[in-house]
Amino acid sequence: MMGNLLEHMGVDRNRLHFSWISSAEATKFVDVVKEISDKVRALGTTKKFAKDYTK
């Protein structure tokens, strides 16, 4: 429901990721983080939910 609300508010669903990772699954955690980082980096920067500290 959180993802749906964010999407409803105009946030790109591809920037959101939900995974179930056990504390014992370190390698899965690393893999997931790498995968998401690459995916989001490819999407480029966004101004949504990003605070502009130069103001």
Binding site: H8, M9, G10, V11, D12, K48
Partner: peptide, 16 residues
């Protein structure tokens, strides 16, 4: 809700 959902993502963001 359906009305907002029918907009494209940028328009939805602008709406909020």
């Amino acid at each position: 809700v359906d009305h907002i959902a029918s907009m494209d993502p940028e328009t939805r963001w602008d709406h909020f």
